[in-house]
Design a protein around this nucleic acid. Sequence first.
DNA 1: CCCCATGATTCAAT
DNA 2: ATTGAATCATGGGG
Length: 425
Amino acid sequence: MDDQARIMQSIGGVSLAGHSVQGGMPLPPPHGHDGTDGDGRKQDIGDILHQIMTITDQSLDEAQAKKHGLNCHRMKPALFSVLCEIKEKTGLSIRGAQEEDPPDPQLMRLDNMLLAEGVAGPEKGGGSAAAAAAAAASGGAADNSIEHSDYRAKLTQIRQIYHTELEKYEQACNEFTTHVMNLLREQSRTRPISPKEIERMVGIIHRKFSSIQMQLKQSTCEAVMILRSRFLDARRKRRNFSKQATEILNEYFYSHLSNPYPSEEAKEELAKKCSITVSQVSNWFGNKRIRYKKNIGKFQEEANLYAAKTAVNAAHAAAAAVQNSQANSPTTPNSGSSGSFSLPNTGDMFLSMQSLNGDSYQGAQVDTLRHVISQTAGYNDALAGNTMYSPHGLNANGGWQDARTPSSVISPTEGPGSVHSDTSN
DNA sequence: CCCCATGATTCAAT
DNA sequence: ATTGAATCATGGGG
């Protein structure tokens, strides 16, 4: 009502002279209709304005009819231009038109995050790749396949919800915008509305909707964060490897005891065999080395066990190899895992141990064999005086091989015989 | 509930 | 980047 009064007042202050008044008036004549011509006009205008102001209070049909009536009113062109003038003066049409929305930093942050998490952005392919990248980037590099796929599934779910919601909002926004634009266009026939204003209105609507979208993005981010933390928590949980996997790892470890540092390729192969990740293999070997070194005595039995195992395997393989080809040299290059420094000496030792054992091993399993022999040699050393390890023990670095030396001293009770008998596990 | 084994993480050294 | 060492945290056996 305040507005109405104000407009009425301003109308009064603007000259209407010069505007021709023509045509009949289909509306009921204003009450108390007497007085001068000017008075009559004022009354007329006041009446029209009153109708315009109250048009929203009426039912649609009623309003429609009245609108039509107003459009045909003889005073309409005059009123229209007057309103334009008022608007021009009050600067209503320009105000705020210039405020272009500056990129909201928070929105940008959310967008970037969603993009990085693989929720926003291109379709599935890129999304899962981004998810994998995010998972790999977060702490270490462990990508447990089971939990990873679970994570991905959940992320996809979030992604889908996000996109459907986003689409819904987009659609609603468009619908609403067109609706408002139509409305404004229609209204522009009765009141002055410039295209700029429509544009501005659209901008306002879009801003409103984008703020809703931001809420959506925010909650999506939260969901992803929760999922991430849960995923990481789950990953942190320790699950023992399968017995088979441990066996494979131990086999490798004890058959490369002289240099238990698997190459990247070896790690990959072990990982594949054990169905664990490469980083888990690295962890395992890291832990194993340190724990073995810390307490060799404790692992002696295990070492013997796996030594025996590999010996059996190697013997079989060697036997097969011997049958297949007699021409192999006993110093055939081994499987690449032995350290560069240990080869020249171990070659000699290998030969000497061959004669010690009375077996003739040939073929591809030289490294394994070497270990088996060195194991048995260790026990022999313990009994015989322990000189066998010094060339093998490699003073080159001191680190790992030092730890082996005591192993030859430990447990003289356990001999090669008992090794073979103790394969119950 | 305690204890130990074990996978994972962290941090410094190289 | 890889490794060693210390440490954390959990699972499982007693």
